[in-house]
Nucleic acid binder design. Structure first.
Length: 934
RNA sequence: GGGCUCAUAGCUCAAGUGGCUAGAGCGCUGUCCUGAUAAGGCAGAGGUUCCUGGUUCAAGUCCAGGUGAGCCCA
């Protein structure tokens, strides 16, 4: 006779195999059709807000793992806060203007800037950006990220663009923005100035030359009839035409040394090294001076022959070069600032293409890189070249075209970081008003703020918002070229942009942009010209606190949290902070959360050249987005996080364990109604109560970890609980009771009550991360066993994200009980070890074939005895004999009697019952009762 | 070169203010079960806590210097 039909075996059609790549789109469809995000918004009206402000990714290309990491973290936080009861809207955004779109598009079109009118190009750029917004939107949604996808914010929206104009105007009027002439990183290929964020440093082979500058005078103690030269070292011979000074360190010691028929001046400490590098014999030191005594010496400019002076500078080093530094204020940042101090002219005789102007007679028209060799040749001819070689060093390159950059002084617009104490104020707020996670993120921000130069806001490009500045061009105006800074001018431009988009600046004549009839307040004329440069995209995204947070009704400025990769300390965190402080005297965020970068198995960054780039789409197609979500949340993302086949494999294993536990729970709850079949806590079996008590502390800890954004701690705990507490212990022990006891028995219902709470709690605790699976379980319950949710406060129609976060039920916590069971578990561990030995020696196979004899000290013995028959269930053995002894000793024997064909337990009484000769005493009762009812 | 940061079993993570024989889980190996079954149970083997010094009765933990890695800057 087959008794398996008389058992209560698990029943569910929740599949063991997830088939996530197929299942996930169904869940996404459900969220879409049920308008889950909108419903959440409706229901949370009036709840306390939690605003996580999305940093806009760049609308170009497919999403990479870094963006996956970022968006998933944001989604987990938003979902957690939502389930906790907050109104936590998520409005995603995109950064749409700027060089990367331009470059890609020019590449795609196969033309350059000069071959297409700006307006025509801008139209295509807009389409291009819009295309990638849609593409990335689909990819982000595929990750399971809930948000206001149907109305994201775009930096190329007219309203947004208008805010950019008005923010610029306000900052200009407040005196933060100025026009300067300053060396900036310039890409001769792209013909544009580059922001710091657009520069990549990589190795480049450069010239390395030592050059003699003839000194026209020198300190009197030195007496010689030989020519005296100071020696400089440079890797950019082409900057020599722009040389305006030579800097020495005031504290270094300098020597005049005679080599053959000439005398050279250089820092004493550099002597040995320089002599080796330029292959000079040992010379004779004629005199030695501290640097400060050598200020104001006159030398002959090597290219122009002008008489120029030596100056003092602290940044001079002896690590490289000669301690005498060639200064070209038009071609170097430090040089520029030193130039300000000494009133040196900013000379930069190079045009947009990086070619020398006519003023550089000898080399006019040459590109600066081509000019290096002729310059060196020229120096050599004059006898001023001491040595010439090559050096490989880190050099700035254009992030888009990859070409080497030059520093070139051009008229640019700047945001003055020290205007109105902006830097100081920002740093103070960073220190006092913003929470930084992890904490070191604060010192990083401070360090960067402290040292950052003024922010170059202008770009000589096509795709962006025009700098909204109008000049008076009347040649007779007392201040020709002055900017119209009247508020109504900026307002007029902003409103035009709001009406027609930023193209209006390039389409319309200047008169149509300023207020009708407006005339120059200075000269009364109406001759105007508009600025041609466009605004740095970092400024655009940097004001999102104003254009998005402050303007969107559902949002709020400041945001509760910004969360981005650690590179954004220099990027968005900083540009947002600076603009917010300048505009409104406060930071745009209460908390800043930083995550690391995704690196490969060895911890190396991903790059095309290393060939170690992992494409998220491949993982999604093969394993599902859920695996990516879990992966993110198993790692400590305050550091860089690794990805590899092995790590993904491990994530899949962990996923399977959790999923199977859900399946087991569902299967064993198929005939359980809540609350009808639920057993009151005080009537439950001890072990069931014990697990529920442990579940409460799991809720506590997991919630705390979510609250401190340490999802990996939460998930390691959940996984640990699921594997060890549930799968390896509770579920295993419970099987006998669930399967063999009569369906409606108190014992079985007690177990199910525990299982019910476990299932409901766990799917909620995992929902922010395992969103697809938790929702799938939720949907499965509603479809297959709605009776499980007859609990009135759970609405069947809703997504799991409309239900709330599990609360700790203090009544279920029983620490005494947990302690007691810890003792029992220790005994169980001992029993399992002995069982394993007996299994190895083939005495028993299944543990149910065993009878266990436990000798234990009296207190432990009484503890075990108190469990009665439950003890053998806990140990999953057929018989138990308890004896008193000094120490714990466990022995295992073959169980007595025969095997019950129904429950597989052994009992001496099997065979006693004539009606059921193959069943044990417990089962024949159960089977009998079944027959009575059937 | 400078700023910030990281380094603990094959992998992912633990080890308040220095006090353990450095812990989990996964994976691995062996094994049992076949009523969670492309599941589940049990047992076992895995660590010079990156290296070198130092402080201390005591260092994975503190200090200094290396090495490797990441972000940012020059």
């Amino acid at each position: 006779m087959d008794y398996s039909k008389t058992l209560n075996l698990p029943r569910t059609n929740f599949p063991m195999r997830a088939r996530l790549p197929e299942k996930e789109p169904e869940i996404l469809k459900f969220w879409q059709e049920e308008r889950v995000y909108s419903k959440i918004r409706e229901r949370k009206q009036g709840s306390p807000k939690f605003i996580l402000h999305d940093g806009p990714p760049y609308a170009n290309g497919d999403i990479h793992l870094g963006q996956v990491l970022n968006k998933i973290l944001k989604d987990v936080i938003v979902k957690f806060k939502t389930m906790q009861g907050f109104d936590a809207p998520y409005v995603p955004g995109w950064d749409c203007h700027g060089l990367p779109v331009e470059h890609q598009l020019f590449k795609q079109l196969g033309i350059n800037k000069s071959e297409i009118p700006q307006l025509e190009f801008r139209k295509k750029a807009r389409e291009y950006a819009a295309h990638y917004v849609e593409k990335q939107k689909g990819q982000f949604k595929r990750l399971g990220v809930l948000g206001r996808w149907e109305k994201p914010y775009l930096t190329m929206d007219r309203e947004y663009e208008s805010e950019i104009v008005s923010a610029f105007g306000t900052l200009y009027r407040k005196g933060y923005i100025y026009k300067g002439f300053k060396p900036v990183h310039w890409c001769p290929q792209c013909q544009t100035a580059l922001a710091e964020a657009e520069i990549e440093y990589k190795d480049k082979i450069s010239h390395s030359i030592y050059v003699k500058f003839l000194l026209k005078n020198y300190p009197s103690p030195l007496k010689t009839s030989l020519p005296v030269y100071l020696v400089i070292w440079t890797t950019t011979p082409w900057t020599l035409p722009a040389n305006r000074a030579v800097a020495l360190h005031p504290k270094f010691s300098y020597v005049f040394v005679r080599f053959n028929q000439e005398v050279l001046l250089l820092a004493k400490e550099t002597m040995g090294r320089v002599r080796k590098e330029v292959a000079l014999q040992e010379g004779k030191t004629l005199a030695e001076f501290p640097g400060k005594d050598l200020e104001g010496l006159t030398y002959s400019q090597p290219i122009t022959g002008e008489g120029l002076k030596t100056v003092m500078a602290d940044f001079v080093t002896v690590e490289e070069g000669t301690g005498c530094v060639h200064i070209a204020p038009g071609h170097g940042e430090e040089d520029y600032f030193l130039g300000l101090k000494y009133h040196l002219p900013v000379v930069s005789p190079v045009n947009d293409e990086g070619r020398f102007l006519d003023s550089v007679h000898k080399f006019a028209g040459m590109s600066v890189f081509e000019a290096n060799d002729p310059i060196i040749a020229w120096l050599k001819k004059r006898g001023w070249l001491l040595s010439s070689g090559k050096i490989s060093h880190s050099y700035p390159h254009c992030w888009r075209c990859g070409g080497p950059l030059i520093l070139r002084a051009t008229p640019q617009w700047f945001l003055g970081v020290d205007k109105h104490n902006l830097r100081k104020k920002a740093m103070e707020l960073v220190r006092e008003k913003v929470g930084w996670i992890p904490s070191w993120s604060q010192s990083r921000m401070l360090g960067m703020l402290e040292k950052r130069p003024d922010w170059c806001l202008s770009r000589q490009r096509y795709w962006g918002v025009g700098i909204p500045v109008v000049y008076c061009t009347n040649p007779d105006c007392p201040r020709k070229g002055r900017v119209l800074q009247e508020e109504q001018v900026f307002e007029s431009i902003a409103s035009k942009v709001r009406e027609k988009g930023s193209d209006v600046w390039f389409e319309e004549k200047v008169e149509a942009l300023i207020p009708p009839g407006f005339s120059c307040p200075e000269c009364g004329k109406k001759q105007f010209e508009k600025e041609e440069d466009i605004i740095d995209v970092w400024f655009e995204s940097g004001i999102s606190h104003r254009s998005v947070l402050a303007r969107e009704e559902s949002l709020r400025d400041p945001a509760d949290m910004y969360i981005e990769g650690s590179d954004q300390h220099r990027g968005w965190f900083q540009t947002s902070l600076l603009t917010a402080v300048a505009l409104g005297e406060r930071p745009p965020f209460k908390k800043v959360f930083t995550h690391g970068f995704v690196v490969d198995a060895q911890g190396k960054k991903m790059s095309k050249s290393l060939g170690n780039v992992v494409d998220p789409a491949k993982i999604i197609d093969r394993w599902g987005a859920e695996i990516l979500r879990l992966w993110v949340c198993l790692e400590d993302y305050t550091q860089d996080i690794r990805v590899s086949q092995e790590i993904i494999g491990q994530t899949i294993d962990i996923y399977r364990r959790i999923r199977n536990s859900y399946r087991f729970l569902l299967g064993n709850l198929h005939d359980f109604c809540f609350p009808e079949n639920a057993v009151k806590s005080e009537e439950m079996r001890e072990i069931d109560r014990c697990v529920l008590s442990q579940l409460q502390s799991l809720i506590k800890k997991v919630t705390a970890h979510y609250e401190s954004f340490r999802f990996y701690e939460a998930f390691h705990l959940i996984h640990h609980f699921t594997s060890t507490r549930l799968s390896a212990f509770f579920f295993d022990v419970l099987k006998d009771r669930l399967y063999t006891f009569s369906r409606n028995s108190g014992e079985r219902r007690s177990a199910q009550t525990a299982l019910y709470h476990l299932l409901m709690t766990l799917i909620h605790l995992t929902a922010p991360v395992l969103s697809f699976t938790s929702e799938e379980v939720w949907l499965s319950i509603r479809k297959n066993n709605p009776e499980l949710m007859s609990d009135h406060h759970i609405s069947l129609r809703d997504s799991i994200f409309l239900s709330s976060w599990p609360e700790v039920d203090e009544d279920l916590i029983d620490e005494e009980l947990e302690k007691k069971w810890e003792e029992i578990l220790k005994v169980r561990e001992e029993v399992l070890k002995v069982l394993e030995e007996k299994r190895q020696s083939k005495v028993v196979a299944s543990s149910l074939e065993a009878k266990v004899v436990i000798e234990a000290p009296s207190h432990l013995l009484s503890l075990l005895a108190s469990l009665g028959d439950e003890l053998k269930e806990v140990l999953i053995v057929s018989q138990i004999e308890l004896k008193e002894a000094e120490d714990l000793i466990v022995r295992v024997k073959k169980a007595e009697g025969g095997k019950c064909l129904r429950c597989w337990n052994y009992s001496p009484r099997v065979g006693e019952n004539k009606k059921y000769p193959t069943l044990c005493e417990r089962c024949w009762g159960v089977v009998d009762s079944l027959c009575v009812f059937s």
